[in-house]
Design a binder for these strands. Sequence first.
DNA 1: CTGAAAGCGCTAACAT
DNA 2: ATGTTAGCGCTTTCAG
Lengths: 340, 340
Amino acid sequence: MAQDKVTSVDVARLAGVSQSAVSRYFTPGSSVSKKTAEKVREAAKTLGYRPNILARSLITGRSRMIGLVVAYLENYFYPEALEKLSTALQAEGYHVLVFMASQTAGNIDDVLAEILDYQVDGIIMASAALSSELSTRCQAAGVPVVLFNRRQDDPSLTAIGSDNVAGARALADFLIAAGHERIAHIAGWEGASTQRDREAGFREGLAAAGRELYARELGNFEPETAREAARRMFDRPGRPDAVFVANDHMAFFVMDVLRFELGLSVPDDVSVVGFDDVPPAAWPAYSLTTVRQRANRMVEETVSALLELIENPGADAKQIALEAPLIVRKSARKPEGWAS
Amino acid sequence: MAQDKVTSVDVARLAGVSQSAVSRYFTPGSSVSKKTAEKVREAAKTLGYRPNILARSLITGRSRMIGLVVAYLENYFYPEALEKLSTALQAEGYHVLVFMASQTAGNIDDVLAEILDYQVDGIIMASAALSSELSTRCQAAGVPVVLFNRRQDDPSLTAIGSDNVAGARALADFLIAAGHERIAHIAGWEGASTQRDREAGFREGLAAAGRELYARELGNFEPETAREAARRMFDRPGRPDAVFVANDHMAFFVMDVLRFELGLSVPDDVSVVGFDDVPPAAWPAYSLTTVRQRANRMVEETVSALLELIENPGADAKQIALEAPLIVRKSARKPEGWAS
DNA sequence: CTGAAAGCGCTAACAT
DNA sequence: ATGTTAGCGCTTTCAG
């Protein structure tokens, strides 16, 4: 049988103090005498009392919950981010309320409305964009939002991500230096800022060498679509000798099509490079040359930006693009004389 | 500037009805006249009002939040489970509050206490076990708990998982039928029920054929430990000709040590089998023969068991061990005449 | 069907 | 430092 909930009143009664004394004991920074504290501590312990966070939040206006909107956990960049975000926030006394939402399912707005219903202190958008209407609503509700791994052309929105342009540019430079002639691209979903920035940076690198994309297919960040893109791109004469796949997640499927369906050698026949540096990229079966998104740094910046916004609602929005280093492994031919 | 929060009182005033009428309008199953409903709907819309779930929960005693305790998102079984659980719960009007906790870090008890502070309606333990003290506390607080992918010897605890014993047994039968002579095991963390059940089932299969484990090392469910275990086990004469690695996550690292460090062929020199059937197991670079945990079914059962417990606190606990089918791929030699 | 009133468990003035 | 009081925003009797 579910025992009755024990409240601060019960504790107060047992301890022989007022209910506010109990509240004070559990409120950091409140002043209670040693004597009272001891009585409360004891009574609370025997009763197994702990403050009701929800009741507290009703009056303080802080729920100590952060809404996290996330979509594709199949892209292993996100589980990693989720784990780190959750742990970091937990260390600060916050907890993550998860909302699954896919951009394409078009339910973002509903989901965001629900989040707001829970009176979260802040929101992290780790997938999908914010309609300007919702953005306004959050603003109105006084709930700060930070975009994780995406950005929007709205200077009032805080966004933390990598320098996708520079990262992809480095990939292009690397491929060109290695002497590749027919350089292609398998793109992710074009609604994503990461895709647009990566492609822009990559093209910029090609252009700087007086080159352009030899071929381009759409992979949409989805395994099956990426596989089909790879087949269309490579199963014909005059195939590319290098391909930049817009993220590692797709790159694995592309590599597998090349090696196991088409019998091509990577990197001897074709070089493959990706973006993100998710854990499997380092697995020897792939050994993918890619650009690292520094998840730890991204999480740190996201958490600190969010807490800053929560504590200081007037704080300025900021956009951060972290440096994203090239990670050279074996899936792409290296330029001559490249230090191993 | 953060606009003042709009409450039901504001809506009532604008609509020219009582505050209770507003509440009723937003409470499913309450009776409001068409006329009132319309007035409220309109007023709420122009004000952008939505009920405060936290305030509601204070009186109803239901927060519509489920606490999810999870540890290792690097094992790709869990992101998948998390995504599906969250989506399924969302569809039922619940949301997931995430708590990262590692068994080994020993902070489970603190974490669970925190969860309870949030007045969650239920708890899913997707990692780590429950001390009997905490179990009692949850019971006392009237918060139902369901164990996901683990079980404890406590018939009062609801637990949803796979039939690890039978699954591993099938693996042993398969390996023996294929004529393997020196069959080894790389174990996961021995504190986990999954590990104990899998090993027991595997040994049972060997015993039924009058055999026993040729070698055994501890991988602890950790990549580096698993790699070392593989090196110790295989980098010497008289190495095993087959190995059951306790989960897919470790099996990938073991395969890579065998193939890329020791130059062995899988499955020609050694057969490798795993457990879980996480997505990369199907990637051609691994093509791992394994046992499938049916994540969808597990999630369905978990959600329905939890909701049942929430709605009907007197409901009996149940333990479910879902059938876990053998998935034959290419990482292990097949018995002669095995239907491809 | 509707409004008035009570109160969920807590914190935050306000006195003392 | 402590107790008293007044709500936080909502649901739920209770009258009418």
